[in-house]
Design a protein around this nucleic acid. Sequence first.
DNA 1: AATTTCGGCAACCGCTGGTCC
DNA 2: GGGACCAGCGGTTGCCGAAAT
Length: 372
Amino acid sequence: MGHHCCSKQKVKRGLWSPEEDEKLIKHITTNGHGSWSSVPKLAGLQRCGKSCRLRWINYLRPDLKRGSFSEQEERTIIDVHRILGNRWAQIAKHLPGRTDNEVKNFWNSFIKKKLIAQGIDPNTHNLILSTTTNNYNTNNFNIINACNKLLPQPQQQQQTTSPLMNIFSSSSSSSSAFLSSLPYNYNNIPLHEILFSSTSNQYRNPNMFWSSTTNTNTTSTQEQNNYNIPHAPSMESPASQASTVTTTNPIIISSSSSSSSPLILNPSRCGLIDEDFIMWNSGNYEFNIEADQLIRKEEIQTQVLDPVVVVEMNNKTNHIHEMMNSTTSASFERSNNFDFDFVESTTSTVLPCGMYCNNNYHSPIDQFAWDC
DNA sequence: AATTTCGGCAACCGCTGGTCC
DNA sequence: GGGACCAGCGGTTGCCGAAAT
């Protein structure tokens, strides 16, 4: 029985013989493949066109790199998979000479198991954590504990209440208490790489409103802890509670959906990445990403693979500035001031959004992600 | 040494989206 | 608009050699 696509033909299936390979190579190198459906006949093969195409793309193409994957390739796959998910063809584009099939097989046979062994969920890239000490909702717990595990330990704070970032839900009865108990202390904000990435559909959540602001008129550590939630149009009750919350450089991610959970972050460095662009921000800046500021995809790859980013710092944040000086490069436009307005918040559907974090920009980003 | 189990990988299947008529 | 055709993609299958029993 032939394939669905060529049931009228008598086609061979199974492994390709060297003779068949030779015929296919000879035909394509001299004539090109043209329409794949016509290749079998023209090449003298009793295969269906689809099979020919697959054989060529996955095995016979001259530009293929054979052999085992390098550590760098492995790291690339993990990093990109974290952002793109099982989009093997997209991932393979980051690995010259590798096919989607090869990447997929390598993932399923090796990386997946390795991540699990490391306590990382290969699907979400979240740390697989115990639930015995979950004092908040699941998201909070994961984030807080993941961060606490990774961060330099603040000296004067309880770790379970010293998150780098928090999520609260407007529908949660504990959100107010949770907000008012945020223990942010400017001096203890570690330098972190934070990537926001929508992980489904178009990598862009048209319903997410992202904003960032900071009171830049303050000088002392305590004064800098003024928290000012800006014009987040879909913020509901949390906005009115915000003035009682102290932090610096918060980023609020909220959704137009009333049932959604606004996301409040307090990163010292943060960025947003999707298939089209990546931007970073740090310090006391309000930022705005617009469509005409797209960064080329090649640069995204660089950022994903080697997220070493220098962010210009405000002079008011000297201690962070000094720390940031140890980093060395940035390959995209950066600015002390840029506004960020992801996409107008207009509709009700909420798409997943992932976040990644690490505490060392010279190491792979391999800590965690979650949906919100 | 024979048999069974396991794992890697090539190939297949079915679906989707784009294009053409 | 819709049907046919095609390329591309991701999930799944099944072959085959290696490892385990």
